[in-house]
Design a protein around this nucleic acid. Structure first.
Length: 311
DNA sequence: CTAGGGGTAAAT
DNA sequence: ATTTACCCCTAG
């Protein structure tokens, strides 16, 4: 780190770091930055951050959730991105509690039968479970892919999850596998390798999803749409900014959408049941190929097996 | 050490 | 041109 002259280049916080910070605040309380930093559970992730960094980041994250933070004096530019029902109450429940948790998990259950939540679906820019799953897998960075439980945990403690989230997740995973976006090995899911074409450089950075959308099969266009990372972040940011009620409404939309997607997924899975088999066959082939290569002068083939599948 | 004010590179 | 969000500074 050589910032010789002024002007720090910037070092954006990663999702892991944010997650670690949230977890740390949950464990030790907001304000105990030093304590969090020294906690062996988080020091691994946050070792390049200072206590002040933690404090600042927490402030930045809190500013949106609610007028809570402190850094909003002239910054009251709130963007109303949802016309929504006119009668939206505005309870000024300013809970000034620095030590309190910022849990948003206690959102009260949605009004059962009242379909008031049926807000007009704004295009297709809604948060999609797909994106969360992809983010979870890439950020978890587990060598052999991540299993359903790990993925669920990641999403659950990083974002708000609907009641029957597990079921939705299962359906979505199945669909993603059958549509070729994910590959299932044993019990683990990993991001599918790039379509065909030549991959010029190995992108060891995060989010290899920047790749074009793959045109495998003719799944409905809306489902194949791939979002860029910034788009995903934008959506997630919006979610964080929402009030409990807005979040509940958005979540209800997401649930409805996911439910529809599940039916679609199950049908697709029935038809394209061979996709998984293909993937596993390719995996088996790749492993066999690896074994054949073993013994050569190659010191250590660390190349992800996924890269070989389409070879 | 932490909270808050403020500066500014980077993003939109 | 405006907003974001890292980073630095300083008082308590």
């Amino acid at each position: 780190n050589f910032r010789v002259v002024m002007g720090a280049p910037k070092q954006k916080w990663t999702s892991e770091e944010e997650a670690a910070l949230k977890a740390g605040v949950l464990k030790h309380g907001a304000g105990k930055w030093r304590t969090i930093l020294k906690d062996p559970e988080f020091s691994g992730v946050l070792y390049l951050r200072s206590n002040v960094d933690l404090k600042d980041k927490w402030r930045n994250m809190s500013v949106m959730t609610n007028g809570l933070g402190s850094r909003e004096k002239s910054r009251l530019a709130l963007k109303r991105l949802q016309p929504a029902p006119k009668q939206d109450e505005n309870p000024t429940n300013v809970s000034e509690a620095p030590q309190s948790d910022e849990e948003i998990a206690d959102v009260k259950p949605l009004p059962s039968s009242s379909a008031t939540i049926k807000i007009t679906a704004p295009k297709r820019s809604i948060v999609r479970l797909d994106n969360l799953i992809l983010e979870a897998i890439t950020n978890l960075r587990e060598p052999g892919g991540s299993n359903k439980t790990a993925i669920a945990s990641y999403i659950e403690d990083q974002y708000w999850a609907p009641p029957d989230f597990k079921r939705l997740l299962s359906g979505k995973l199945k669909f993603l596998v059958s549509s070729g976006k994910l590959i299932k090995v044993k019990r683990n899911y990993r991001i599918a390798p790039f379509p065909a074409s030549s991959y010029k450089r190995r992108n060891l950075q995060m989010i290899p999803q920047e790749a074009r959308q793959q045109t495998s099969g003719k799944v409905d266009g809306d489902e194949l749409r791939i979002f860029t990372k910034s788009q995903i972040d934008l959506e997630l940011a919006k979610m964080r900014n929402m009030s409990a009620q807005e979040a509940a409404a958005a979540a209800a939309r997401a649930v409805a959408e996911a439910e529809a997607a599940i039916e679609e997924a199950e049908e697709a899975a029935r038809e394209a049941e061979a996709a998984e088999a293909d993937a596993e066959a390719a995996q088996a082939f790749a492993e066999a190929a690896m074994k054949t290569l073993r013994g050569r002068s190659t010191p250590k083939m660390v190349v992800p097996i996924a890269n070989m599948i389409h070879a």
